[in-house]
């Protein structure tokens, strides 16, 4: 076709532009990484597919590195420190592990030991350190009592610069907020690379920054008993949500279900609470707070939330009844019909 008039040239250009526009990228880009024994979902908004892919590849490398550095029982600086604690030797921790230790120590004090990151041996005894624990008998009461008698505590660990040692050989660190810490680091990475609108979700512990082109992120909270989502909440700016539940990791033996959140006082899975959801400024704090709030149970959970600086949380009991703090109640939307029985508590 010979284009003899300017109009024809214009027409051809318009056509070319329209065809090029057909390749409209989705403003939402997602990826999934399997690392740290869990599923990590990353979402970005308003980032080109190419830039998102580059960031996802870097994060895949970072999560694998963190997995190797922070692993509590495979060979890592953390597992070597745990081995050194058992043998009364000194070990070196990386700066990240030292930061996690410091945060874990603060949470252990605030929760009066309900959050105890030093009970790695107990978690190992129950088999919850493995990615998937097969069904099988629980450990014997005697083995559990023997570990509890040794009273492993984070206060047994003496820190000198980057060197650590333990005065109690029964101490083994297993950080409850490890996934949350990794989420925070991943968000730091995204921001440093100019990505301001994103969600990083590691095993249900998530942090959302920015928004979807001015629209808030819409986050579901899993229904602890039944399929799908119990409630939803809108996040924008920078907020984290974590849920601890008895459905996450468990095994069954002779009709009894044993879940992975162990009460450091009894050495057995906590009772009375099915799930706790926490909102916090960082994913690490949200992740850390969930477990002791579950263990604290109906009488103590609000008081503990206050001590941990948590104002927005909900607790689901074994009958499906929900207790929710006023600040969270004001912004939560139920997603099941009929809505569960709900009690709005006093502010923590």
């Amino acid at each position: 076709m010979r284009l003899r008039k300017p109009l024809h040239g214009l027409l051809a250009m318009l056509l070319a532009c329209l065809l090029a526009a057909c390749e409209k990228p989705d403003p939402l880009q997602t990826t999934r990484i399997l690392a740290m024994g869990t599923v990590i979902d990353i979402t970005t908004w308003g980032v080109s597919p190419r830039d998102a892919r580059a960031a996802f590849e870097d994060l895949q490398t970072l999560f694998q590195r963190w997995h190797q550095e922070w692993h509590a029982w495979l060979d890592s600086p953390l597992s070597r420190a745990n081995q050194a604690f058992a043998e009364g030797r000194e070990a070196t921790l990386t700066p990240d592990l030292l930061t996690m230790l410091e945060h874990a120590r603060a949470a252990a004090h605030a929760s009066e030991g309900l959050f105890n990151p030093a009970i790695g041996r107990l978690i190992e005894l129950w088999g919850f350190h493995a990615d998937e624990r097969p069904d099988g008998p629980p450990p014997s009461q005697a083995a559990i009592m023997e570990l509890l008698r040794k009273q492993p505590s984070v206060d047994d660990i003496i820190v000198d610069g980057d060197r650590v040692r333990s005065t109690n050989p029964a101490v083994a660190l297993d950080f409850g907020g490890l996934k949350g810490y990794a989420v925070d680091r991943a968000i730091d990475y995204l921001r440093a690379h100019g990505i301001q609108n994103a969600i990083v979700n590691a095993g249900g512990n998530l942090r959302a920054i920015g928004s979807k082109g001015g629209q808030p992120w819409r986050i579901g909270i899993r229904n602890p008993r039944g399929p799908g989502v119990l409630a939803s909440i809108e996040l924008s700016g920078d907020e984290s949500v974590a849920t601890s539940g008895d459905y996450e990791r468990f095994f069954e033996w002779h009709g009894v279900r044993y879940h992975h959140i162990l009460d450091p006082r009894s050495g057995f899975p906590s009772i009375g609470t099915t799930a706790v959801t926490v909102l916090a400024p960082t994913a690490e704090l949200a992740d850390i707070a969930g477990k002791p709030l579950m263990i604290a149970g109906p009488a103590k959970w609000l008081e503990l939330a206050h001590r941990l600086g948590i104002t927005q949380a909900l607790r689901v009991d074994e009958s499906g009844r929900v207790e929710i703090t006023p600040a969270l109640s004001a912004r939560l939307k139920w997603e099941i019909e009929p809505a569960p029985p709900v009690e709005v508590t006093a502010a923590p």
């Binding site: 024994g37 599923v39 979402t43 990615d131 095993g203 579901g220 909270i221 899993r222 539940g245």
Partner: peptide, 24 residues
């Protein structure tokens, strides 16, 4: 659906998602 031991993940893709992410 995810199988951790085999590192396999199966996801349904689509733009019309009810939730951007789920806390569990």
């Amino acid at each position: 659906a995810v199988n951790l031991p085999n590192r396999v993940s199966i996801e349904v893709l689509g733009r019309d998602r009810r939730f951007d992410s789920v806390s569990y």
